[in-house]
Amino acid sequence: MSPAVRFYLVNERLILGGVMLIVVLLAWEGLERGWWASLLEPMAGASAERLRLKPIFISSPTLVLQAAYRMFFVTGEMWRDLAWSALGYSLGLGCAIAAGIPLGLAAGWYRRLSYAVEPFLAALNATPQVAFLPLIVIWVGTGMGARVLIIFLLAVLPLAINAHAAVRTTDPRLIAVARSFGASEARLFCSIILPSSIPFLLAGLRLAVGRGMIGVVVGEIYGSAAGVGAMISQSGARFETDRVFVGVLTIVAAGLILVELIERIERHIELWRPPA
């Protein structure tokens, strides 16, 4: 096997992914600069002009890069929007964790409580919770409060539902052993239920992180003055497509970082668990 082929096979994933990315970026740039229109003109004639798109319609990778440079390093406005979004996100997600996990654990532990909250959880979970947003806006206005509330509402359900399932699926043999050695309820909860719940709780957290992102974006594009979502929405209304793309890509980056973070935490927590 020649070294070139071996190099390709070892790095196939990176190479194919990179090639595709470059192809898409070039195709995009070409649409804005009219490369494809000029290229096809001899064959297709005037109809090739349709492939020459206006920058306000499609923008282009270089325009997006320029806009990103301006917004991050020249005017610095992006940092302010990011900080504002991050604040709402952390508050909403923090409240959801503080309320959802205890509620779910309690509902899993006390059967009657579970019967009482089940209908509410099931109904709310089937609803697209963002439909509550206009109601929230007339209750608390369009400021930070509305955003924290909608993020909370979106993130709390997966946390509570997973915590509930976690307690329910605890290995009954472990509970029986602890009971027969006379463990108190508190002891049972701390040393068996809680540790065995952690993978479920993390799975819930992973879902909640994604739902919270929806809350940030939707809460901000629907009537808010600051934040990345608001920036996207306002730029869209002014047809500043390059700024819209900067906002979207910033959110993509934030999402990827959050997913990576959760996976790190999961791996870290798995380390101390004795192998099953």
Binding site: M213, V217, I221, I251
Partner: peptide, 27 residues
């Protein structure tokens, strides 16, 4: 190979709420 080609796009889109693209779709 198809996974390698499209993976970056599906992963990136999976990490964001797709409603973020709404202002673009409206343009």
């Amino acid at each position: 190979r198809l996974q390698y080609l499209f993976g970056p796009f599906t992963d990136a889109l999976n990490a964001v709420p797709r409603v973020t693209l709404l202002p673009l779709m409206i343009i």
